[in-house]
């Protein structure tokens, strides 16, 4: 694959990290999948929904059991893995130039990236299946 296409994917995954990272941040900070989302606010007359507050750990685990969210996390994992390991490849190939070094770097980044991806997928699946 030409370097321009790889770099296009690098820029695209960079943007997608912002999107999926934002969703991930939302999921962990603002969204509450459980109907029991009322919080009593100290010294306040009423209860408030949990917007802007922290989530209970069980609520967070509930998010992972939702298929749509699991898909979002899997996509997030995919783009982060590609972006990170292609980034490492670029940094390393600047430091160690030459055709042999280039091959070693490219294949080792591919293998390590795949291992990280498989391990991350396993974590998402385990959380999804409960």
């Amino acid at each position: 694959m030409r370097e321009s296409k790889i770099m296009f994917l690098q820029y695209l995954t960079g943007l997608l990290i912002l999107v999926f990272g934002g969703l991930h941040f939302l999921a962990l900070s603002f969204l509450t999948p459980s109907p029991d989302k009322q919080l009593y606010v100290y010294q306040s007359a009423t209860n408030h929904t949990l917007v802007g507050g922290a989530l209970y750990y069980n609520y967070v685990l509930d998010i992972y059991k939702n298929l749509a969210w699991a898909a979002v996390f899997e996509l997030f994992l995919t783009v982060v893995t590609f972006h990170a390991f292609n980034g490492f490849r670029i940094i390393l190939s600047e430091q160690f130039s030459g055709p042999t070094a280039s091959k070693v770097i490219s294949y080792s980044m591919l293998i390590i990236g795949l291992i990280v991806f498989i391990w991350g997928t396993r974590t998402i699946l385990l959380a999804f299946l409960g």
Partner: peptide, 9 residues
Amino acid sequence: LDSKHGVWR
């Protein structure tokens, strides 16, 4: 130009 040590570096 479109190589590993070309314009994208």
